[in-house]
Each structure stands twice: as structure tokens, then as C-alpha cells.
Design a protein around this nucleic acid. Structure first.
Ligand code: ZN
Ligand code: ZN
Ligand code: ZN
Ligand code: ZN
Lengths: 159, 159
DNA sequence: ACATGTTATGTTATAGTGTAACACATGATT
DNA sequence: AATCATGTGTTACACTATAACATAACATGT
């Protein structure tokens, strides 16, 4: 079930993207919509070249076009780059203002879980303020092992 | 003063690295020591190819050798890879067990500040536990703007 | 209509980051 | 000596990302 598509959400996602683009005097063009659709069809992060391959059947796009679309989708807050994976994920919820999100990336299966954490947001805010450091975003990445994969590992290495 | 070297620490660092290597039945070889020394001489993160250039005067090293040395130095806990920068930094303090460290990376000047935060460690621990997620490390990266750079920006864009 | 500015895409080439694969050397263990 | 694990050399390659420049498409004011 990890491979399920999320086409149900796509219309709403496009509406949201269109609105956010308009408010910046930009637009969610067909090209950008196609990249968004590819990301929305996967529950896992995709590399830019994965997206290119996914689109190559319907349309040729050079790497730079993919990257430009991704940059735009990140600017309007729908997509996030996972630095530890060099990959891009659709954010499941529209990120609220001042909300601290944790992206839990499983090293083993690659699944990404997004967790909102006011408690971490509070302590992190204090810590950063004490260091006079202003974060560029309230989204943080944590690599590790998800519960499913931990269970699988303990089955194959019983101790 | 940001460019100051830290050669004073180098001997102790080498001793620490040697001890940690030995406990793994490995060793801090000359090659690895050279990479460590280059990182110790800078207060900023360096890319693998920056390290290669730094060493090219004294010795030719292929990229793969640099990466292998970096991997080793990360395994013994002396060096950390900053995913958002694709760069490597010497950890200033020996990371204690179960200590949560924040790497505050300035987008503007590139400086990295390491901050230990028990409070964040506590809330993060609870949040991850609630999500049944086991983190691979207790080191997190936060991109943003340091106080110096914020001051500079406000001077050039008074408002 | 025309000029002007901005947004968006096309095209080509190139830079930057990281590994695979295999051979070889070195040192410890038995 | 035979064996095994560790460490390095060498070559070639894969993957990720951007520079630079041209063109198109669209809005806006005159
Ligand atoms: Zn994320
Ligand atoms: Zn998993
Ligand atoms: Zn770090
Ligand atoms: Zn700074």
C-alpha cells in the first residue's frame, strides 16, 4: 500500500498551487503542473532525473526545466527538497505559518513521514533565539529507521 | 578572524582519532590524518574537492580517496556531512552520547555554529518516539542567517 | 498598434558531487 | 606459508545541478 497514488488530491493541489502562484503574479503552468502531478503520484521522494524519466513518455524536458519547475514549486511551498536524499517531496499538508515540521526519512525504505511538532517548535525557537540565529525555514529533516523497517530488521537479526 | 586556523587543537584531535580508530581495529593513517588536518585548519565546511585542492600541493589524491577518508572520519565521529551544503565540517566538540547537537549553518557567510540543546533533545525524543521513528543520529542541521549577517543586511537595507 | 517590461521556456554546454569495480599492498592471525 | 581484514591506487563512470544565451508568451501603458 506504500505505492498508492494520490490522484484524489491532485485537483485540490492544483487549485492551491494556482492560487499561490497568482498571489505572486506568477502562474502554475502546464509544465509545472506536470512536475507537480508526478510528485503527487508518488508517496516517496523523487530525484529530478526520476521526474524527467517519468515525463519522458509524454513530453521531453531537459534537466534544467525540471529544476526550474521544482524551484518554483518550492517557492510556493508545495514541494520540499530533502537535502540528505538529493530528492524532492510533495508536502502533504499545506504548511501553516510558524508551524515546525519534521520530515522523518527512513534510510531503509525511503518513506517520508511528516510530523508537526509544536513542542519541538517551541524548544527549537528558544534555542535559536539564544544563539541569535534566524532559521530560513521551520522544516527539519531527520534520517533514521521507521517502525516497519525496524521490525523487519529485528526479524532477520533476532537477538 | 573567521579564517583563523585551529592547529593548536590538531594534536589532541589526532590523538582522539587514533584512539577511536584503534577501538574499531582500524587506524588513523597518514592519508586520513591529512584530510583531518585540512578540515581542522578551516572554521568553515569544505567540499570534498576543496579538500582535494588543498592537498594537491603536497600530494595527489583522487576524489575517491578523499571520500573514503571522509567516510572514515565520519564513522569515528570527528566529521559531519552537511547535507544542505554538500560539505564536510570538523565537529568542534567530541559529541557526547545521547547529546542533541544543532548545526546552525549561515546561508550568507557559511559559518557553522554548533549548539547543544538538551531541551530540543527532549522534545524531539518524545516526538520521534510517538512516531515510532528511530533517528540515525542526534545531529540536526538548520539553515538560516547568523546574527552578524542579519546586522549587515539590516544596514544595507534600512527599514 | 506599438514599445516596454516581466514571466516562462528552449537549447546547449558544462560544472559539481559521488561511486563502481578491480587490482594491489600491507599487516595481523593461525 | 596460508588466510583474512584493512587500506590504497587507478580508471572510468553515474548522478546532481547550473551557466549562458536565445526565444516565446503575456501583460500594461501610451
Ligand atoms: Zn523535508
Ligand atoms: Zn522504513
Ligand atoms: Zn552538522
Ligand atoms: Zn553569517
Amino acid at each position: 500500500m506504500a505505492q498508492m497514488t494520490r490522484s484524489t488530491d491532485l485537483d485540490g493541489l492544483i487549485a492551491l498551487g494556482t492560487a499561490r502562484a497568482r498571489s505572486r503574479r506568477q502562474s502554475l503552468t502546464p509544465l509545472r503542473t506536470q512536475v507537480l502531478a508526478v510528485l503527487a503520484a508518488q508517496s516517496r521522494p523523487l530525484g529530478a532525473y526520476d521526474i524527467q524519466r517519468a515525463l519522458s513518455a509524454s513530453k521531453h524536458m531537459s534537466p534544467i526545466s525540471i529544476y526550474r519547475s521544482l524551484e518554483f514549486l518550492m517557492e510556493i511551498g508545495l514541494v520540499h527538497r530533502l537535502a540528505t536524499q538529493s530528492a524532492y517531496v510533495l508536502l502533504k499538508r499545506p504548511p501553516a505559518e510558524n508551524e515546525t515540521l519534521l520530515c522523518l526519512v527512513c534510510r531503509s525504505c525511503g518513506e517520508v513521514d511528516e510530523v508537526s511538532s509544536p513542542a519541538v517548535g517551541q524548544t527549537l525557537g528558544s534555542t535559536l533565539a539564544a544563539a541569535s540565529f534566524t532559521p530560513a525555514s521551520r522544516l527539519m529533516e531527520v534520517e533514521g529507521d521507521c517502525s516497519d523497517c525496524r521490525r523487519r530488521m529485528s526479524l532477520s537479526h533476532p537477538g
